[in-house]
């Protein structure tokens, strides 16, 4: 009999626990789903060909956001050009060459710490090193370098994971055929890891495109009428544009539609890019035979 009651009590606890779990899943879905829906509904009406292809006019209360889109594109491309080669080579060293030891441990901790540095600190660092010390000024180059460093740990992490996923048997098979380590890496390991490395890098692109704080002091202009002609020009950037319109100036309410439109473009861009990466990755995982 005692066992009977205790069973009932146990099932009651089970019900409470599952209720809590389902409730949190529901709350999370509702909050984030609601947020996305809200942005989508409010932003969709603003989107038009002109909005995407024209520069802002009338002290940014009218017109489009083309310079900001273009600026974000430049900064992101620059960031990936900086981070991709550095990241892949670092990851190859860490997974293929490094022997476990204090030195590798230090490098790994360093990468982890770099990953945790707040984005605003990257902004200060970019300001101190690129803008001030190297005298690049506030421009695409400074911003792209700062963002590149910001996403470097992401790229290293993704590349390491992809390299580790290449079965050890492939390496052994190649080495047992009398192929050198370097050739094994180039011919067998990297080609098999490449899709994984690229998806990881795409996630890095999404991150770089959405960051505001690091470009605030290093690249982003409040407003520029002219499009950049070199990497030493300032640019507008989508996230910074949103921040500026929503918080500064005298037309905050009047530019609300533009803010929603810009948000929708930014979210669409970032989540779209991330979605592509995630879809590629999941199809790849299904196709993999090893």
């Amino acid at each position: 009999m005692a066992l009977q009651t205790s069973m009932r009590w146990r099932y009651f606890k089970e019900g409470v626990f599952f209720g809590l779990v389902r409730l949190s899943a529901f709350l999370l879905t509702a909050a984030l789903g609601g947020l996305l829906l809200y942005i989508f509904v409010n932003g969709l009406g603003v989107l038009s060909w002109d909005f995407l292809t024209l520069p802002p006019t009338d002290s940014m209360t009218k017109g489009g956001i083309m310079p900001a889109i273009l600026g974000t594109l430049y900064l992101t491309t620059g960031a990936i050009l900086v981070a991709l080669p550095l990241g892949i080579v670092s990851a190859v060293y860490l997974t293929e060459y490094a022997k476990q030891g204090p030195l590798v441990r230090v490098i790994r901790v360093g990468v982890n710490c770099l990953a945790g540095v707040p984005s605003i600190v990257f902004g200060l660092f970019g300001l101190g090193l690129f803008v001030v010390f190297l005298q690049f000024g506030s421009c695409i180059l400074s911003g792209a370098l700062t963002l590149g460093i910001l996403i470097l740990p992401t790229i290293i992490g993704a590349s390491e994971e992809a390299l580790k996923a290449v079965p050890q048997t492939f390496r052994e098979a190649s080495l047992a055929l009398g192929v050198s380590k370097w050739q094994t890496i180039v011919r067998i390991v990297l080609p098999n890891a490449l899709p994984g490395i690229l998806t990881g890098s795409i996630l890095g692109i999404g991150r770089a495109a959405g960051e505001t704080a690091p470009v605030m002091f290093t690249a982003a202009a409040f407003y520029t009428a002219k499009l950049p002609s070199s990497i030493f020009d300032e640019v507008m950037a989508l996230p910074f544009h949103i921040y500026v319109l929503a918080t500064a100036g005298t037309h905050i309410e009047a530019t609300r539609p533009i803010q929603f439109g810009t948000i929708l473009v930014l979210v669409g861009l970032v989540l779209g890019v991330d979605l592509i990466a995630i879809v590629i990755r999941s199809t790849m995982r299904k196709r993999k035979r090893w």
Partner: peptide
Amino acid sequence: VEVRRRIGMVFQKPNPFP
């Protein structure tokens, strides 16, 4: 590398390259 060219190896699990 030279040694392994002269002395080949076949492993426990078949390990063809993809």
